[in-house]
Amino acid sequence: MVPTVSDNSGPIGPTSGSFSARRLLLVGTGAISVAFLPYWIKWLGLALPDVECRVVVTRSAERFVTRESLSAVNSSVAQLDAWPEEPRTTALHVEWAQWAEAVAVYPATVNFVSRFAAGMGDTPAMLALQCTRATIGIAPSLPPGAIDNPVLSRHLKEIQERPGVCVAPPEPGRSSTTGRHDAYVPPDLPTLLALMERSSGRMA
């Protein structure tokens, strides 16, 4: 079952005056649409110049996009969602959880959605999301057939019921594997951020 948005005003991409968060943690996971993140990071810099963005990618995301390309279009170096080998004065997940005013997971794979719904904290980004007070936006990317999975539907419903968390309804889209429009892809990043802003307003 595809999650729905109760606000009938429709998604409108935010501008510099309409997105209240000034520190955005952007997490990219291993769906093929993560390849578009450099474009969206460039858009962020133009449309929301007052927003500081930190980018984190999972190991599976690196199949489709490099940290070098993400760093080249952002003001900070993209980081890998993995426990650091070197000792740190501040734990990475604590740093991210406390720094972020908003967290966007774009795109979010079935695996990421399921781990988040289960309350897991097996990577720094996942643990940060479980601990942060920031508004969290999830943009699922679903392969063919996943939308009909009852377990995944339950996970999406559970996530939407969490305070401060919103899910952007995925849209029917073309599967890179089958070549047919039998997948569900995330909406554009401005749509997710607009939904997060409305969610944040309802929390206030």
Score class of each variant (00 low, 15 high):
residue 2 V to F: 01
residue 3 P to M: 15
residue 4 T to S: 09
residue 5 V to D: 13
residue 5 V to W: 08
residue 6 S to P: 01
residue 10 G to T: 06
residue 11 P to S: 11
residue 14 P to H: 09
residue 15 T to P: 00
residue 16 S to P: 00
residue 17 G to V: 09
residue 18 S to H: 06
residue 19 F to N: 06
residue 19 F to L: 07
residue 21 A to G: 11
residue 22 R to N: 09
residue 23 R to F: 02
residue 24 L to P: 02
residue 25 L to P: 13
residue 26 L to P: 04
residue 27 V to A: 13
residue 27 V to K: 01
residue 28 G to T: 09
residue 32 I to C: 12
residue 33 S to H: 09
residue 34 V to P: 00
residue 35 A to P: 01
residue 39 Y to F: 08
residue 39 Y to T: 12
residue 40 W to S: 01
residue 41 I to Y: 02
residue 41 I to G: 01
residue 42 K to Y: 07
residue 42 K to V: 07
residue 43 W to P: 01
residue 44 L to K: 07
residue 45 G to F: 03
residue 46 L to I: 05
residue 49 P to Q: 11
residue 51 V to K: 04
residue 52 E to L: 13
residue 53 C to M: 03
residue 54 R to Q: 06
residue 54 R to K: 05
residue 56 V to P: 03
residue 56 V to D: 11
residue 57 V to C: 14
residue 58 T to Q: 14
residue 59 R to K: 07
residue 59 R to M: 01
residue 59 R to Q: 08
residue 64 F to W: 12
residue 64 F to N: 06
residue 65 V to C: 04
residue 66 T to I: 08
residue 67 R to E: 14
residue 68 E to C: 01
residue 75 S to Q: 11
residue 76 S to R: 10
residue 79 Q to G: 05
residue 80 L to Y: 04
residue 81 D to I: 09
residue 82 A to L: 01
residue 83 W to F: 15
residue 84 P to Y: 08
residue 84 P to T: 13
residue 84 P to I: 11
residue 88 R to D: 07
residue 92 L to A: 13
residue 92 L to K: 10
residue 95 E to W: 03
residue 97 A to L: 06
residue 97 A to M: 11
residue 100 A to M: 10
residue 103 V to I: 12
residue 105 V to R: 02
residue 108 A to D: 10
residue 109 T to Y: 00
residue 117 A to Y: 13
residue 118 A to H: 06
residue 118 A to Y: 03
residue 119 G to H: 04
residue 120 M to A: 15
residue 120 M to F: 15
residue 121 G to H: 03
residue 125 A to Y: 06
residue 126 M to N: 03
residue 127 L to W: 04
residue 129 L to M: 15
residue 130 Q to N: 14
residue 131 C to W: 03
residue 132 T to E: 02
residue 133 R to E: 13
residue 133 R to W: 05
residue 136 I to A: 11
residue 138 I to H: 09
residue 139 A to E: 05
residue 141 S to M: 05
residue 141 S to T: 08
residue 144 P to M: 10
residue 146 A to R: 01
residue 147 I to M: 12
residue 148 D to K: 02
residue 149 N to Y: 00
residue 151 V to N: 13
residue 152 L to N: 08
residue 153 S to P: 01
residue 156 L to K: 15
residue 162 R to I: 13
residue 162 R to H: 10
residue 164 G to R: 08
residue 164 G to N: 10
residue 166 C to M: 13
residue 166 C to Q: 08
residue 167 V to K: 02
residue 168 A to H: 05
residue 170 P to F: 10
residue 172 P to L: 05
residue 172 P to Y: 02
residue 173 G to S: 08
residue 176 S to P: 00
residue 177 T to E: 09
residue 178 T to C: 07
residue 181 H to T: 07
residue 181 H to C: 02
residue 186 P to Q: 11
residue 186 P to W: 13
residue 186 P to V: 14
residue 188 D to W: 00
residue 192 L to F: 05
residue 193 L to P: 02
residue 198 R to L: 05
residue 198 R to K: 10
residue 202 R to I: 04
residue 202 R to S: 12
residue 202 R to A: 14
residue 204 A to C: 00
